[in-house]
Amino acid sequence: MTANAEVALPPELHPYDHLLRSADLPTIWCPGCGIGTAVGALIYGFEQAGVPKEKRVIVGGIGCSSRIVFYAKTDAYHTTHGRTIPFATGLKLCNPSLNVVAFAGDGDLFAIGGNHFIHAARRNMDILVVCINNFNYGMTGGQGGPTTPAGALSTTTPYGNPEFPFNLPNLAWATGATYVARWTTLDVRRLRNTFADVVNRHGFRFVEILTPCPVSFGKTNKIGSGVEEMEYYQALEVLKSRVESTEITKTDIELGKPIVVGTFVDRERETFRERYVRVVAKARGSKS
C-alpha cells in the first residue's frame, strides 16, 4: 500500500506508465469495464514481442474501445465509426515497417464496418484486428448491435433481441483470416501471450475479446457489475486450445450457455502485400 489521495504521486509508478499517455489517466471507461485490461494486454504484447516503440501504430474507430488511442502511447489515429480497417489498410500499405493494430468495438467492426472487415480478411491485409466485444453499443448507452445475443435486452431490444448475432471467429475464419482467437478479459494472461505471439506475425489476424460492460449490457441483462460479468465468464468459459475448422460454427455465444474460448485458426496464406510486390515486379519487368 502506498499513497493516499492527498499525497502527490511520483510521475511513474506503474510499470506501464512510460507506455501510456499517463498524464491523461484515469481513463474515461466505466468502473468494471474491461477495455483497459485489453489495452494493457496489447501493450504487453508489443513489449514482449520487442516491437520498437516508434513502429507501434494503433487505429481506433468510434466508441468506447477506440479510446485506446488516448491512453496507449503509440502513433494513434482516432478515425470515424466503422473505418478503422480501411484506414489501417492504407497506413500499413504505405509503410509496411509499421506494426498496425486496428482496435475497435463490435458495433464499429461488424455493423457499420462489417464490409471492411470481410474484405480486409479476404485480401489477407497485414493487420491485427482486435475486437472488444461487449455485446452492445456501450458509449451511446447500451443499444443492441451485431453481437448482441439473441434474446438479450438492450435499449433498442427492450423485448429481447429478435436478431441472431454474428459468430465472429466463424466469420473471420470464413472470410480468410489467418489467425483467430477469442478470449475474455478474465483470460488476461492468455490474452497477453496471444498478443505477444501475433503482433509480429503477418496477414490478417483477429482477436475477439469478450469484455464486461457493466453499465450498459451487464446491468440490463441481470448479469450485474463488471466483476460479476467476469464471474459469469469464469463460470461459462470452455477452453478449446484449437478448434477444427469444421467445429468453428459451434462457438456461437448464447446467453447463459457455455462460451468457447481459445485459438481457433492459425494458418498461412499469402498476404496482399506479398502478392502486390509481385505485381510491381511484373509491371516493371514487362514494360522496360
Binding site: 489515429y77 478515425t79 470515424t80 473505418r83 480501411p86 484506414f87 492504407g90 504505405c94 464490409n115
Partner: peptide, 17 residues
Amino acid sequence: MEDEIASMIAILGASVT
C-alpha cells in the same frame, strides 16, 4: 477497395505515413 467509404479513408491512412 470495397466501396468509396473505404477508399476515402484508406488514402488518409496512406497519407499519415
